[in-house]
Design a binder for these strands. Structure first.
Lengths: 350, 350
DNA sequence: ACTGGCTTCGAAAACGTTTTCGACTATATT
DNA sequence: AATATAGTCGAAAACGTTTTCGAAGCCAGT
């Protein structure tokens, strides 16, 4: 007493006809189609997704795997919310569902990925927070399931990915600082295994080199990507002799803690040390002095992720151009007051 | 060349035996089970979810429907991240998948719910942001699918829900303010249709009444639930004659804007006006003077949501006690400096 | 030697849908 | 009038899995 069979009996047609009517096939009379559609709406019928997926061999859904760990929950910003919103709107245009699959904290994340793929829970995947060597990418390549990665990786080869323009960010930040006379420029990186840290560090070193500034290992800080991590870095900073005159922070939240620790030491960003943050987020907006940082459209990146993934789906290869997407996503510098500090002015005023 | 059939041929057993071995049935020799499990692990086999769901009539997944609108993305805090993390960990313990289903902005949200239910995409649902009259609740009741709502509603009857303790919050906030001599106490509510606004307003009125303070309609502010909304409210506030001496904010972000607008007018929270925020979030943590607000464990609420939902699933009725859960979730007051302002002291010092 | 029970397995049905293919009708073409 | 064509529909197979049921084998007890 349910499903397409019920609907068919109600209308005195075969289930095949009902299916064809609902799926817009042309070998069904326009009049009967109307009847079927009306009855389906009236009875609130929609085809059972399991049956449909089983027959068609595809689930009509795309998965976005995201880490929802407790610490992510505590420190979270709007990063993934914006991405999901964008990707979802891109995919919805093609009648694909986007489902967010949170990594369980109770199981190895690679094992979860394997299970999801092996069970054919979704047709394609968006993964994020790529590692320098990331088993997921190798696996997805062999498993022959379309996917796109947010973040580069040394693993895999010609798989599609989009990553933020860390080179551009490091370059324009360092250019800006050097132009104000800074030579002792520090950087704060996350202490996890994500590829982001490596790429950012390399970009930083390259930018320094362009200005003939030697790389100083003790100017590289690593810590938790949280307010507390920023506080700790601030502590190290104030305790240093010949400390850096500027610092580049890879996470917004680091700025919150750094500001706090500096002010405890009677120091102020923009006056005693230049601070540049990385991605503008919801919290640092309210800092004073305002934080110089980099801005991007999360929605647009989400849309691009979705569309790039569509391009890899066989069913949409006609709509979207082929070729593996490997994109660098640009960010715009948002000038604030936190890097106003000029070494020359400071020395002149002594 | 795939699926359970492949595995069975490889092992020279029937597909039925393979299935039974993997599902822990007793009518399979322990030795063959070992062989099956080993082969499955080696070949990376996991049962196709569509086939499995079709046969079993259940998907083994729970859906958490969340609005990922652009403005939600812009203003977002960690609210849902924490909830999802908690719910996921509760459900994972019983081998249930949690999938987050973002409402598309391109389709009516009720229609989306209907589709998801009719297609049997998930076995049960968590819905949030309930409305005063919420068609989703009526529908889910009739559709005979287990669900739990985060938020009360006038719709439906004995359906399971959990909601925050707005009464308790309003009461302890108003008690605190009245004890400091305040009588002109304002409240800032969201301008949307969620039930939250109604419940909070009623709680506020009841708390005032308990202290014999008449309700003043012009002390009820409504606006966008964003920093800008708080800024606007601040503007109204400073322009008022005989303005309130205290205000209760329903959203954390309102505090950010309010602080900003007040400081533009040379006023300061805690000195010129008492401010109490509602839910402690990631941004207001960094306000100065610190915001008096209310704290809760998002993780624990998520866990409770998950477990309460489990209790409504037929398959788990033995594990969890029956009965529809209708819970009020408590919050703890976190004293800050923003409500230090005492009317008596202020008057005395004049 | 027969019965009964226990263990282990395979054949086959069923889940709800889509899709192929052939059949049938009505219309158009010769 | 015969034939081709287009339009409309239904029967049936197939997707991958779980589960029921019966069969087969083995052992113990009589």
């Amino acid at each position: 007493m349910k499903g397409i069979r019920h609907l068919a009996e109600q209308l005195n047609v075969s289930i095949g006809t009902v299916s064809k009517a609902l799926n817009g096939r042309h070998d069904v009379n326009e009049k009967t189609r109307k009847r079927v559609l009306a009855a389906a709406a009236k009875l609130g019928y929609a085809p059972n997704q399991s049956g449909r997926s089983l027959r068609q061999g595809s689930t009509n859904a795309v998965g976005f795997m995201i880490e929802f760990s407790p610490e992510a929950a505590a420190n979270s910003d709007n990063f993934f919310v914006g991405l999901v919103e964008g990707a979802q709107s891109a995919l919805a245009r093609h009648a694909l569902d986007l489902v967010v699959l949170p990594y369980s904290t109770q199981e190895d994340s690679f094992a979860q990925l394997q299970r999801i793929v092996a069970r054919r829970l979704v047709d394609a995947l968006i993964i994020s927070a790529t590692l320098k060597v990331d088993p997921r990418i190798e696996y997805l390549g062999h498993a022959n399931i379309p996917f796109i990665a947010l973040g580069r990786s040394d693993s895999g080869g010609k798989h599609p990915w989009i990553d933020l323009d860390f080179e551009g960010v490091a370059e324009s930040a360092i250019d800006r600082l050097v132009a104000r006379g800074h030579r002792r420029i520090a950087i704060a990186l996350p202490d996890n295994e994500t590829n982001l840290g490596y790429v950012f560090l390399n970009s930083y070193r390259r930018a320094l080199k362009r200005h003939g500034i030697p790389f100083t290992p003790r100017f590289v800080f690593r810590g938790r990507s949280s307010e507390a991590g920023g506080y700790d870095i601030g502590g190290e900073l104030v305790a240093m002799e010949r400390r850096p005159t500027a610092i580049l922070l890879v996470y917004e939240l680091l700025a919150m803690g750094l500001y706090r620790r500096l002010s405890e030491a009677g120091l102020s960003p923009g006056r005693d040390i230049a601070v540049i943050g990385f991605r503008e987020g919801p919290q640092a907006r309210f800092l004073s002095p305002t934080l110089t940082c980099f801005r991007m459209s999360l929605h647009d990146l989400g849309v691009t992720l979705g569309e790039s993934l569509l391009a890899t789906l066989p069913a949409f290869s006609s709509v979207y151009p082929l070729g593996t997407v490997q994109k660098i996503w640009p960010l715009q510098l948002v000038p604030g007051e936190s890097d106003n500090f000029s070494v020359e002015r400071a020395q002149a005023s002594r």
